[in-house]
Structure formats: structure tokens, C-alpha cells
Nucleic acid binder design. Structure first.
Length: 311
RNA sequence: GGCGUCGUAGCUCAGAUGGUAGAGCAGAGGACUGAAAAUCCUUGUGUCACUGGUUCAAUUCCAGUCGAUGCCA
């Protein structure tokens, strides 16, 4: 197949997903150079320019090697959500595909990747007031009160949600309170089809090696000044963006609740658990083809990718 | 060296006046539609340090050994 024969339907989005610290960034850059294209980052914390060290964002050198989108494009003060990410990425892809027949999306945020690949239902954005009120109910009356309200307002969703998960209950209730429509009605659970093709590549390593990489990277972050970065952000700790591994543990240290050593250990542990959750998410999606981070060559040999090498 | 305390799950420890044991953490698995690096669920067999004794039965009682620790010398 030559470039001239390509139709619009040949455009390809290559998703590179996997657990934290597995080596997605390096691999992504390697692939992007081979394919002569750009990278869209799908990492819900690397969005924020104030969080550089603790999110292991691509370095300035890496960013200058291959253009990245959605890295450090936000401030932690900016409200943001998956839906905005979906529409912004789709808009960007429309433009990028005019120039590049294949584009990479690299990241570890499963929900965000799903939104781009398969879409997310039209739902109202959270209303701050309502959410605060629901959180107060949770605190004062307990989760039972939320369960009871959901049971009345949206029994259909109450039958399928994880009733022990306050975040789920509050989200469903705030939608109902804001719109008068039950969440179960708005949540269609249908996958949108995209105009472009998608190949999903999962990157993984044996758990023991991944853990070593996680631990090593946390040590490196500390050496690179994570403590200072976190200290500067400490006054803003209430912001959602800072409810993040690598920061919240250091905030505990600043409050005098833990030692620095303990906080650093906690960061390692929580990163391992995060990696586990990411793997659980990606593994259940049968579309993923799994590789190791050093498998750039075999990835490029995939029939979907090989036509684009050196274009 | 003497006296005491301790030795139980990867770690910190509980426990049975004798019927082979259980919590927290870690680990493992899972869920997930605008908080997602978030939020939540499930999951505990281990020579109860070793050797011998008493006993129908010992991880539990007794003795010795080893190790840890405290006090005294």
C-alpha cells in the first residue's frame, strides 16, 4: 500500500497502554520516530504543568525529540475531565490525520483511553455545590443515606452499582439532582465507532521487574527534587489533581504524620498498587496485543503498522 | 557469666488455664461512564525456633539447646 492509495479510513490510531514505569514513554518516542508521527499523551496527571517530577512526565529532551500533545497543557487549578479530553483529542486527531496517516496515543489512564477509542455518554458535568452537599450527607449520615436515596431515585442503577463505593453513588445522585433524570437513563453504555482505525498495544513486564522499576523510579524522583516540588504544592493540596501518588504521601510527611522514609516507602507501595489497577483495567479489554517495552521491532512488524514505517 | 522476657503468616503482633491458630499491613485477584495516579470489593495452612519429656493428644505444660532483647555483674 502506498500513501497515494490510502483513503481516509486507513487512518490509524495506535494506543500504547500499560502500567506506570513500564517504559511507555521511551517506547512511544521510539515508535513515533519510526513512524514519523506525533504522540498524544493519555495520562491524567501529566496534564498538569505544576506536576513534573512526580508524574514522570517526558523530559524536555524527550518532548523536543517528538512533539507531544496533552502534556503540561493544564494548570492544577483548571477543572478538567474525561469528556473534555475525549472531544479535545478527537478534534486534534482530525487535524493531525491531515498530516500524519498514523498517530500514537501513549498513556496509562484507562478511562481516558476508552473515552477516545469508544466514546463516553453525554452526561452533565459535576455541579460543585451538589457534590459538596452529597459529600456532607456521606460524612454525617453515612453511606446508607446515599444508598437509600439512589434506591428511590434510580433503582435500576442501584441494582448494578457497587453500593459500597461512595464515589459511584455520589456521581449517580448528583446527576439526578442536577437533571431530574436517572443516571441509568443517561448511561447508554454503547460504544461509538470512530472514523479511524485503532490498534491497541499493551506493554507489560514480569511483576518483579516492574516493581524494581517502580522502586527505582521513585528513588530517582526523590533525587530529582520531588520533595521540593511537593512542598511548593502543599498549600494547594485540596485540589483534586494533587490527590495523586507521589504527592499525597509527602503531604502526610509535611503535616508531621509520617517520616520521610515512611512516605517514600508509601509512594512505592501505592505506585505498585496503581500499576496493578492499571493492569486489571487493560487486561479485561481483549483488543490489546501485549508486548514488552523492548519489543519496538515486533510492534512495528504488526500488519497494521508496517505499511507506515518510514513514510 | 547470673536473672528475666521473647521466639506464631513476607512484616508488626494477638491467642488458646492442652484438642494443630487469627488480626492489621504487605502480597494476589477483581470492579470501574466527567474524582480515574481517583474510588471501591474479594482473598489468610503457617514445620506456632529446635530437641527431648509428660499426656489419648503439645504450638500451648516441663527440661534442655539455639537466637533476640532487657537488667545485674
Amino acid at each position: 500500500m502506498t500513501a497515494i492509495q490510502m483513503t481516509i479510513d486507513d487512518r490509524l490510531l495506535v494506543v500504547i497502554a500499560g502500567p506506570t514505569a513500564v517504559g511507555k514513554t521511551t517506547l512511544g518516542i521510539q515508535l513515533a520516530r519510526q513512524l514519523g508521527t506525533r504522540i498524544i499523551s493519555a495520562d491524567s496527571r501529566q496534564f498538569y504543568r505544576e506536576m513534573k517530577i512526580g508524574t514522570a512526565a517526558p523530559s524536555p529532551e524527550e518532548l523536543s525529540t517528538v512533539p507531544h500533545h496533552f502534556v503540561h497543557h493544564l494548570s492544577i487549578h483548571d477543572p478538567y475531565n474525561v469528556s473534555r479530553f475525549e472531544s479535545e483529542v478527537l478534534l486534534l486527531l482530525d487535524n493531525l490525520f491531515l498530516q500524519y496517516p498514523v498517530v500514537l496515543m501513549v498513556g496509562g489512564s484507562g478511562l481516558y483511553i476508552n473515552a477516545v477509542c469508544h466514546g463516553i455518554d453525554m452526561l452533565p458535568d459535576p455541579d460543585h455545590e451538589i457534590r459538596v452537599r452529597l459529600n456532607m450527607i456521606l460524612e454525617k449520615s453515612g453511606i446508607r443515606a446515599l444508598q437509600d436515596e439512589l434506591q428511590i431515585v434510580d433503582p435500576e442503577y442501584a441494582a448494578v452499582v457497587d453500593l459500597a463505593n461512595p464515589a459511584r453513588l455520589i456521581r449517580a445522585l448528583e446527576i439526578y439532582r442536577a437533571t431530574g433524570v436517572p443516571f441509568s437513563t443517561l448511561r447508554t453504555n454503547t460504544m461509538k465507532t470512530r472514523r479511524f482505525r485503532i490498534v491497541k498495544i499493551g506493554i507489560d513486564l514480569p511483576r518483579e521487574i516492574l516493581n524494581q522499576r517502580i522502586n527505582g523510579r521513585v528513588e530517582a524522583m526523590i533525587k530529582d527534587g520531588l520533595v521540593e516540588e511537593a512542598r511548593q504544592l502543599y498549600p494547594l493540596r485540596h485540589l483534586n489533581a494533587l490527590n495523586t501518588v507521589g504527592y499525597k504521601e509527602l503531604f502526610e510527611y509535611f503535616e508531621g504524620n509520617t517520616s520521610l522514609d515512611y512516605a517514600v516507602d508509601k509512594i512505592k507501595t501505592n505506585s505498585r498498587r496503581y500499576a496493578k489497577r492499571q493492569l486489571t483495567w487493560f487486561r479485561k479489554d481483549p483488543d490489546y496485543k501485549w508486548f514488552k517495552p523492548e519489543d519496538a521491532h515486533s510492534i512495528l512488524e504488526l500488519p497494521e503498522l508496517s505499511p507506515f514505517i518510514g513514510l
